[in-house]
Design a protein around this nucleic acid. Structure first.
Length: 269
DNA sequence: ATGGTTGGGGTCCAA
């Protein structure tokens, strides 16, 4: 096997892994990924499309799915250990975790989108989203430490910074960018001193998106994006962080997901 | 203020 100095890890909300399996394969190959975490696989475990991924050289594949909704997966060409899932708030399949050979623990999350109305008193889905964020933060504080090497990534369905949305003012009342959610995500981020890898390389003053709605004739022209997909690391991994990219061009082509992948490079330790 | 589009499963829900 040739020398490989960096480990390349990605996250991608695929919005049906069966419909877009060829996109997944192309991403793995063209980005030379070691590990890819998926969200919204929308498939029961018995129907997960294993074979094309194995044929592409990814033999360590773990998933937790359900019919029609939610679902997460980790696709890897590196051995993974201690695969486990956690159910926060309810039984939705929104989390799967694994430990890498160097001991780094990887947590893949699909945080609830939260519905349309940003009021937990009248919208159960928004209440669920807030409770889910709280539950993760509590679990992390009680079970993990900020001096351990951890990666937490996925579709968090929250765009925390003003430049993470196309119009901060116009989206203050829109689920994904409301102050109450941003506050929740901030507390979650503080739980272990998480580092937002994308913003390590792009200043907070610069627009940065990972999702563009289907409800636009021309997503690139209108450019009404939001940064919903994140890769966070704990402080011990910061010196190992080499790069982070949001693969905007993957929003193009036939039948794209409405999200694009985010990829980081970490020095192998 | 409203509506715009997509996927999955099945004639509607979630995003």
């Amino acid at each position: 096997m040739r020398y490989k100095p960096f480990m390349r890890i990605g996250t991608y909300n695929i919005n049906s892994v069966r419909l877009r399996i060829e996109r997944v394969i192309a991403l793995l190959r063209e980005e030379n990924l070691d590990i890819l975490c998926l969200q919204e696989t929308k498939v029961e475990d018995k129907d997960f499309p294993l074979r094309p991924l194995q044929e592409a050289g990814y033999t360590h594949i773990h998933y937790s799915g359900e019919k029609s909704y939610n679902g997460v997966a980790i696709i890897s060409r590196i051995q993974l250990n201690n695969i486990h899932t956690l159910a926060f708030v309810n039984s939705h399949k929104r989390h799967i975790a694994a430990t890498l050979p160097d001991g780094t623990e990887l947590h893949n999350f699909y945080i609830p989108a939260g519905g349309d109305i940003p009021d937990p008193a009248i919208n159960d889905k928004f209440a669920h989203k807030l409770a889910y964020c709280d539950a993760i933060a509590v679990w992390l504080r009680q079970n993990r430490k900020s001096d351990a090497p951890l990666i937490m990534l996925g579709d968090f369905n929250i765009a925390p910074l003003e430049q993470d949305v196309w119009s901060h003012k116009q989206l203050l009342g829109v689920v994904s960018h409301t102050p109450v959610e941003v506050e929740k995500l901030g507390r979650l981020k503080d739980s272990l001193g998480w580092i937002d890898t994308s913003r390590e390389f792009v200043p907070h003053t610069e627009k940065l998106y990972s999702w563009w709605s289907y409800r636009n004739r021309d997503w690139r022209a209108s450019n009404r994006g939001r940064r919903l997909d994140h890769i966070w690391i704990t402080p011990p991994l910061k010196p190992l962080l080499q790069s982070s990219h949001i693969l905007k061009d993957r929003r193009d082509g036939e039948q794209p997901s409405d999200h694009v992948p985010v990829v980081v490079e970490l020095m192998s330790s």
